[in-house]
């Protein structure tokens, strides 16, 4: 049999996807009034500076907390801070 007609088993070059447990989203908030919302800022000051300014000036019914970095790894809130945080906005992208 010519080599071109021989049947070969050919192996898969793809890597192995590690199984991932998928989780539901956290329950959403009934209202933002009186809640503590954390603004996690990663760079993009052209967006995040006016965003922070507007939120603090015009949404005074919300308790805003903020952590900033210019990098792509957000500054995380601590375990203690998580206990008093009702929601988080992360921008931009990371």
């Amino acid at each position: 049999m010519a080599e071109g007609r021989k049947i070969y088993k050919c192996l898969n070059p793809a890597g192995m996807q590690v199984p991932v447990n998928t989780f539901p989203l956290a329950p959403r908030l009934d209202s933002l009034d009186g809640k503590t919302i954390h603004l996690s800022i990663c760079g993009e000051p052209d967006i995040t500076i006016p965003l922070e300014r507007k939120l603090k000036a015009e949404y005074t019914n919300i308790n805003w907390t903020v952590k900033k970095t210019y990098g792509i790894d957000p500054n995380r809130i601590s375990e203690e801070e998580m206990k008093t945080t009702d929601g988080t906005i992360l921008g931009v992208c990371w």
Binding site: P27, M82, T88, G91, C93
Partner: peptide, 12 residues
């Protein structure tokens, strides 16, 4: 955060 019960939204 989501797993800890804190709702999030991402700006991309």
């Amino acid at each position: 955060l989501e797993r800890a019960g804190i709702p999030t939204v991402l700006i991309g």
